[in-house]
Design a protein around this nucleic acid. Sequence first.
DNA 1: CGGTATCCACAATGATACTG
DNA 2: CAGTATCATTGTGGATACCG
Lengths: 113, 113
Amino acid sequence: MQSDQTDGTSFVQMTLKVLGGKWKLLILWHLKDGEKRYSELKRLIPKISEKMLIQQLRELEKDTIISRKTLSAMPPKVEYSFTDYGKTLIPVFQPLCEWGQEHLKRMNANEID
Amino acid sequence: MQSDQTDGTSFVQMTLKVLGGKWKLLILWHLKDGEKRYSELKRLIPKISEKMLIQQLRELEKDTIISRKTLSAMPPKVEYSFTDYGKTLIPVFQPLCEWGQEHLKRMNANEID
DNA sequence: CGGTATCCACAATGATACTG
DNA sequence: CAGTATCATTGTGGATACCG
């Protein structure tokens, strides 16, 4: 039931804006196992640049998917975790990632692409 | 261009490659109601350029999510529909889109962003 | 009708150096 | 440790014209 008659497409743009970043699914994938410190995420995702890590975290935070807690200022200690609202996303993106894993296997098996 | 990851993260890149295109979710959203002709899709998604429409369709086809059937050569008549394999994606991306719709409402309601 | 081809703007990402 | 700042590069998407 679309409420939006002129252009029922903005929810797609929204979905992509929230999850479409190159690293966001991966960040969420790690956070679903529990809160993580900035440095842990950096270690878990070695190929991400600091700029991208902080940028994607900021965007997820702005979208109220994750929250940022400063545990101590000196030495710096920051923890990222799902918000309660963000947790509603877990049953949605987890099957997506699992589908992606199966799809990857299938593509490799058939040597497509 | 990196081809290999060694860590178990490439499924995320794969997921984004398959669904991350700006119009793919929207195309699939329309196709899940049944097969559609090229011109129907163009009409259903007025803002997409022909280049993008055909490009996204080709990629979905290459990923074996949808299939392309030439119904007649003259006049040209082409129909796109989910493959059986592609249908396994429906229960995955549909909740995603529904979440996106709810998220959009929430953002509008709170005037966040 | 159902595409292709070309050119270009700009957004997204990346590398690297620096900072409180 | 947890970021910022800057610059370079790449990728994605759009406009337009043309083709079988």
